Computed example of a mutant assay.
Amino acid sequence: MDLQIPIQISTLSNPINYQDNIMLMGSCFTEHIGEKLDELKFSVLQNPNGILFDPASVASSLVSYVQNKQYQTEELFYYNEVWQSWQHHSRFSKTDLQECLRGINASQQEAHAYLKTANWLIITLGTSFSYRLTEQVPVSFRRGAVRGAVANNHRTPAGWFNKHLLTIEETTTMLDNCLHQLFQFNPNLKVIFTVSPVRHIRDGVIDNNRSKARLIEVVHHMVNKFDRLYYFPAYELVIDVLRDYRFYDIDMVHPNYQATSFVLDKFMRHFVDEKAQQLAEEIKKIVIARKHKPFQPSTEAHKRFLKTHLEKAQELQRKYPFLNLDEDIRYFLQ
């Protein structure tokens, strides 16, 4: 008896390996993938602007990395006692203007340099809804919005924004323009698109489905147009294969640990090189050992445990010099 709908996932002919640099952009589901790859010691850079949800924010941020855009003080605004950017997550917000600006521009420079040599770009789109500033917004607060659109509202008044459902044509145009600039900037770059399985329930069930449908349509159009674009069905794996509320957190919106592990397992199996998968399993043992919390750290048994895994980490470092296991080795040396 089949208890799940079967899904066909194409395995990449030239999959991701440990020598690759991987940039990840987009919604909070991007960070599930990015944190897992980072934990397994892949070279990753994720969300240099912080979490982004809509195609307009993702595309404008990527173009800013290509151009190595450096933000100016007049592009920031002061609200709730901190300086903020409409294009950046609140983790960049600071009480000091220059500190805020330094953090943003350092991230821009890092993203520009990393993207130039990146082998893979993973983009996870969350919603087709874009938020644009209204005429109610004081002029001093409009600075930094890209054509009036913002990536983060920073808990400012709801009346400051118009909610716009991007059309398929709008999204296609902005992603097409973005991809052409990316490929000109880095001819070796390959792109994996995913659509986030997280439901944007604040939009309502009907509008959430309209939003996701537009993303799926555009992404498949782009994948069919460019030979360096691929689609990973994270959305379908959760919505159509798992399709049960036991795979969601208590908010019934975000996939839980079991669901994200299921999706990540499929990603590793179909999008990561077989030898890299085998190495990842060895690294996973080191990661699990490092997370181990001993009840009696002064015992000889725990010291042997540390020594055993120190030797394993050092052996992996010698055998695979491209890995960075420095933190793990320092931990086991304690």
Rank of each mutant, 00 (worst) to 15 (best):
E35F: 12
K36A: 09
K36C: 10
L37R: 05
D38V: 05
D38C: 08
E39P: 00
E39W: 08
E39A: 13
K41W: 03
S43M: 09
S43A: 10
S43P: 00
L45V: 03
L45G: 00
Q46T: 15
Q46C: 13
P48H: 06
P48S: 07
N49I: 08
G50Y: 06
G50V: 04
L52P: 00
F53D: 00
D54F: 11
A56C: 09
S57G: 12
V58K: 02
V58I: 14
V58L: 08
V58P: 00
A59I: 07
S60D: 05
S61W: 06
S61P: 00
L62C: 04
V63F: 05
S64G: 03
V66Y: 08
Q67P: 01
N68L: 12
N68A: 13
K69D: 02
Q70T: 11
E75R: 05
L76T: 02
Y79Q: 07
Y79F: 15
N80W: 06
E81I: 02
V82L: 09
W83P: 00
W83I: 03
W83D: 01
Q84R: 15
S85L: 04
Q87T: 04
H88I: 12
H88W: 10
R91A: 06
F92N: 00
F92E: 02
F92Q: 01
S93T: 01
S93H: 06
T95Y: 02
D96C: 10
Q98M: 12
C100Q: 00
C100M: 09
C100G: 04
L101M: 04
L101F: 07
R102E: 12
G103P: 00
I104S: 02
I104R: 03
A106L: 14
Q108C: 11
Q108Y: 05
Q109A: 12
Q109P: 01
E110Q: 13
A111F: 11
A111V: 06
H112I: 06
H112E: 02
H112V: 06
H112N: 13
Y114P: 01
Y114H: 11
L115F: 08
L115Q: 05
A118S: 15
A118D: 03
A118P: 01
N119E: 14
N119S: 15
W120Q: 02
L121F: 05
I122Y: 03
I123F: 02
T124Q: 03
F129V: 12
F129A: 11
Y131S: 10
R132E: 12
L133I: 03
T134E: 08
T134W: 13
E135H: 13
E135Y: 11
E135Q: 14
E135I: 11
Q136A: 15
Q136V: 07
V137W: 07
V137I: 07
V137L: 11
P138V: 13
V139Y: 08
S140T: 11
S140K: 14
S140F: 02
F141N: 05
G144Q: 02
A145C: 05
V146D: 04
R147D: 13
V150C: 14
V150G: 07
A151R: 04
A151Y: 04
N152I: 09
N152S: 13
N153A: 15
H154N: 02
R155K: 15
R155F: 12
R155S: 14
T156A: 15
T156F: 04
P157L: 10
P157V: 08
A158N: 14
A158H: 14
A158Q: 15
A158M: 14
A158K: 15
G159L: 15
W160I: 10
